[in-house]
Structure formats: structure tokens, C-alpha cells
């Protein structure tokens, strides 16, 4: 017995020793900066003014949440970009996943090809599309002109409204493949026997879609949408390349707005406060996501 106790004791340091390198690094490079950032958000540190700063309490937060029209506008812009993007990504992703699940030949290769946009960086996606949208030499205007549909000088970023449409189009192109992959995995996990039974009972294809596929895919869809929603709150690279927030500040997202405050205006304290407001929002979304996972696991188990 004593030997066992000693053995246990001797082994107790092992898990900690194995885990500590990465935990230390996380503490140093992520947690400490986050604490420092919170401290900063309560000061009035501004690089463009000088290195001195003083404690101002919650002033930055009050400004962000109640006075800063540009930031509140960026919250609105982010929502306006997110809503149609999510809806389109879900619908298109579901459609393509259904098609893929019916494809008998070449499914792996077609799936891999369709997945590529989700693997490229938002910056590269936006850059490719900027060249597609080019006013005189872009593919879209040229194709439209060749088919006699478009005036060659059509500017896809001329108005705020049109810019949002263009951003949503690129975002949908970029991330629909992700939704497609998630939903395809979901569809393939539905037992074929259910469809066979429905068919034997005389159900039409659309009936089995409504009463078997959709209900069983509900949680997969919810998880996919949740992940995209959390990612979309971070929308930055796409905006940086496609519109740089313009025209005016009509396509500025929360992340892009905070970037401008921090690295163009150099109002570091205020940017830190803004980033904490964003973290708060994302944290709420993440908790909802975890809570949904738990429900899913409870239902599955």
C-alpha cells in the first residue's frame, strides 16, 4: 500500500509537467496581454498624443456603447453583412450538400474541389474577387458586356448598398463550402433505412426531405450557423481588401473599425475598450454555442 501511495505521489507531477509548457506560453502570450489590454482600456493612452496616460475609469466604454456613432454604425454594418450571408450560406450549402449526397460518381473529387474556397485566406479570396469586379478589365463586367447584359463601366462598389451586396457575394463564395461540408457529413450520417421505410410507405422524395432529412439535420445546421456567426463577427481581411470600409464607412465591420481606431488613429486605450466590447459579444455567442453542443450531446446520448 505504501509503495502504491508513493508511486501515485511520484506520478502526480507528471501531468502538470506535460501540460505546463503550452499553458505557460498561453498565459504569457494570450492571457497576460488580455489583462494588460483591460488595464489599458481604463486609461486614456493615445500614441498620437504621447506616451503619458492616466486612469479614466469606464469613460472609453461609455463612449463606445453610447456615443461613438461610427462604432455603433459598424455593429449595424456587421449585422447587415452577417444576416444575408448566413442565410445564403445555409441555403446554398444545403442545396449543394443534397446534390453531393445524390452523386454516385466522383463525389470525393467534386467535394474536394468545392471545398477549396473555404481553405484560402479571406485576403486572397477578396483579391481574386476584386479582379473579378474590376470596372474596365474585370471578368464580370467583361462577361456581361460580351453577353450584352452590362455596361462596361459598372462599378460594383459605387454605393453603400451595392458594396454590401458585393461583400456578401464574396463572403458567400468564400464560406458556403464550409457549410456544405458540415451538412454533407450530417446528411451522410442519416441512416438509409429511414428513407427506405418512408419509400415503402409511399412517401414522395420531397416528403421524406421535409420529414426525415430536415428534422434530423436541424442540429447540424444550428452548429454550422453558430460557427459561421462567430467567425463572421471577426470579418476583417475581406473588408480590408474589397472596400477598406468604404464608401464612407458603410462597410466598416466591428473588427475593421477597431483596427482603424488602433492602428490609424493610434488611440490604443479606446481600441482596447472596443475590442473588449467585441470580446463580450463573441463570448456570449460562444457560450450559446457550447450550450447548444451540450443539448445535442444530451439528445444523442
Amino acid at each position: 500500500m505504501r509503495g502504491l501511495a508513493i508511486a501515485l505521489k511520484r506520478k502526480q507531477w507528471e501531468p502538470l509537467a506535460f501540460a505546463s509548457p503550452s499553458l505557460l506560453l498561453i498565459a504569457l502570450v494570450i492571457l497576460f496581454p488580455l489583462v494588460y489590454s483591460f488595464y489599458l482600456s481604463l486609461q486614456n493612452f493615445d500614441f498620437s498624443v504621447g506616451p503619458e496616460y492616466e486612469y479614466v475609469g469606464g469613460k472609453n466604454y461609455v463612449e463606445a456603447l453610447f456615443k461613438d456613432q461610427r462604432f455603433l454604425g459598424s455593429v449595424w454594418n456587421t449585422a447587415v453583412i452577417i444576416a444575408p450571408s448566413l442565410a445564403l450560406e445555409l441555403l446554398l450549402g444545403l442545396g449543394i450538400a443534397l446534390l453531393l449526397s445524390r452523386a454516385t460518381r466522383g463525389r470525393p473529387i467534386i467535394t474536394a474541389l468545392l471545398a477549396i474556397p473555404a481553405m484560402v485566406s479571406p485576403v486572397m479570396a477578396a483579391m481574386a474577387w476584386r479582379m473579378m469586379f474590376g470596372v474596365k478589365f474585370g471578368a464580370i463586367n467583361n462577361l456581361g458586356r460580351q453577353l450584352g447584359l452590362l455596361d462596361v463601366y459598372f462599378d460594383w462598389f459605387a454605393t453603400p448598398w451595392l458594396s454590401i451586396v458585393s461583400v456578401v457575394l464574396v463572403e458567400v463564395w468564400h464560406n458556403t463550402p464550409f457549410m456544405m461540408l458540415v451538412l454533407l457529413a450530417g446528411i451522410q450520417s442519416i441512416p438509409q433505412e429511414l428513407y427506405d421505410a418512408a419509400k415503402a410507405d409511399g412517401a414522395r422524395p420531397w416528403q421524406s426531405f421535409w420529414s426525415i432529412t430536415l428534422p434530423l439535420l436541424k442540429f447540424t445546421m444550428a452548429v454550422g450557423v453558430m460557427i459561421r456567426l462567430i467567425d463572421l463577427t471577426k470579418l476583417f481581411g475581406l473588408i480590408f481588401v474589397l472596400t477598406y470600409g468604404g464608401p464612407g464607412s458603410s462597410t466598416e465591420t466591428v473588427a475593421f473599425n477597431t483596427y482603424l481606431v488602433g492602428f490609424k488613429d493610434f488611440r490604443m486605450s479606446y481600441a482596447a475598450a472596443l475590442s473588449y466590447v467585441i470580446v463580450g459579444g463573441v463570448l456570449v455567442l460562444t457560450l450559446v454555442f457550447l450550450w447548444m453542443q451540450r443539448i445535442r450531446e444530451a439528445k444523442a446520448g
Binding site: A19, P33, G262, Y276, I278, V279, V282
Partner: peptide, 26 residues
């Protein structure tokens, strides 16, 4: 190690927006 808490904390860290980190890191 760390029970479920560590796993969940890691997932939360994964969701952390980079914009929140880049300001103090800079």
C-alpha cells in the same frame, strides 16, 4: 488533466477575436 474545464477554456480561447489580442501585443 484539468478536467472538462481546460478543454472548454481552450475552445473559448479558439473563439477569441484576434483584434482583441493584437492591440496589447502590438
Amino acid at each position: 488533466f484539468g478536467g472538462g474545464l481546460l478543454s472548454v477554456s481552450l475552445l473559448v480561447l479558439r473563439m477569441l477575436p484576434s483584434i482583441a489580442l493584437i492591440i496589447p501585443i502590438y
